[in-house]
């Protein structure tokens, strides 16, 4: 009985090796066809996962490491609530943000500008901090300075030192952002300057809260909701991720269905190729039965050959996929989304 695996392996090697040696083109075509089916499914799976990650990461880069976010029932609310929240027991840090979609002359879509308090944002959303040039270290606070993400710079064809012309006036591009997601078109400036420049004096879009260690998010959220009533919406970062997931659900369902179609196609190709192969070799299998292969051994033999060729086929499609992803986009961390140039706008 101990010899059986060795026997199976050796016989499988003989039979499969002989078959492949005799019909290399047929084997390659079969491998290629099945690899295509599997690769389709795998590629869609990768894109799907990358898309969700990208959406999620984009949301996180804006809200940073906050525990809660307070928004108004309207787009903007009065900033008088900020000191109330900042002094609330249990709040370690409150980060006020003014978020604006500003039309850009000559462009169809608007530029998202975030007005931030650089000292507060540094602790909660460090990705959003602008990088001023060495000779102008206080540009982060300047009322005429704006920092653009690389994607925004590319989109507007601007670089540090250029002037960004908006309908409300001109701003000096003081530099880029510390970190920005690939394809994310955003601009950051001082919150006071943003309020003044864009006629939003005394207004905020949201306040991100970092709670003191040990404070229950749920309890604090409940308390805030009771305190502010329906005037304000209090949400957790997880809620935002769930919202992101909901936003991209239709898109991901579409991709999943496509992946299923690809998988079914692949499975059908695998099945038909193997079925044809078995039918073609029926006389050989009959001979093997006559010379002493039991039904079970023959079935195992066929399955083993199927698995062996399947493994080669999978290697044939998975390794190039992985190689392509890792060699061309070593820093993408699996974000094929950027490769496909899909811009995520939040």
């Amino acid at each position: 009985m101990r010899q059986e695996p060795l026997l199976r392996w050796r016989l499988s090697r003989w039979l499969l090796g002989g078959e492949w040696r005799a019909h290399p083109v047929r084997a390659l075509v079969a491998i290629g066809a099945i690899a295509l089916g599997v690769a389709l499914g795998f590629a869609i799976h990768l894109i799907n996962a990358a898309a969700f990650n990208e959406f999620s990461a984009a949301v996180k880069s804006l809200s940073g490491q906050s525990d809660l976010q307070v928004r108004g029932a309207q787009n903007y609310f009065d900033e008088s609530v900020y000191p109330v929240l900042a002094q609330q027991a249990g709040v370690a840090l409150a980060n006020p943000v003014l978020e604006l979609d500003v039309p850009v002359p000559g462009q169809k879509s608007a530029l998202k500008i975030l007005g931030i308090d650089v000292f507060r944002a540094a602790a909660i959303a460090p990705d959003l901090i602008g990088m001023p040039s060495e000779d102008k270290p206080f540009d982060s606070l300047a009322d005429d300075a704006i920092f653009l993400s690389p994607a925004a710079m590319e989109w507007l064809k601007l670089k540090a030192g250029d002037t960004l012309a908006l309908r409300s006036g001109t701003l000096r591009v003081a530099g880029g952002l510390l970190r920005a997601r690939a394809g994310q078109r955003i601009a950051v400036m001082d919150i006071g300057a943003a309020q003044w420049r864009f006629n939003r004096l005394g207004q905020l879009s949201h306040i991100d809260l970092k709670l003191t260690q040990g404070v229950s998010r749920d309890a604090f959220k409940k308390m805030l909701m009771q305190k502010f009533g329906e005037q304000y919406l209090v949400s957790e970062t997880e809620d935002q991720e769930a919202r992101t997931a909901n936003m991209s659900r239709a898109y991901r369902v579409n991709l999943n269905v496509l992946a299923l179609v690809a998988l079914f196609t692949g499975a059908f190709l695998v099945f038909s190729t193997q079925a044809l192969s078995v039918i073609r070799r029926r006389s050989q299998f009959a001979l093997l039965r006559v010379v002493g292969l039991t039904r079970r051994q023959l079935l195992i033999q066929i399955l083993q050959q199927f698995l062996n060729s399947g493994a080669v086929r999978c290697d044939f499609c998975f390794f190039p996929c992985q190689f392509l992803q890792r060699s061309r986009y070593p820093n993408s961390n699996g974000h094929l989304f950027s490769y496909f140039s899909v811009r995520v706008k939040l």
Partner: peptide, 21 residues
């Protein structure tokens, strides 16, 4: 004859030996 076409002569002849261990 029913000799397996893709196996060498040695392998064809050795089949019963292989199956009998």
């Amino acid at each position: 004859f029913h000799v397996l076409p893709h196996l060498t002569l040695n392998q064809n002849i050795a089949l019963p030996l292989l199956l009998n261990g």
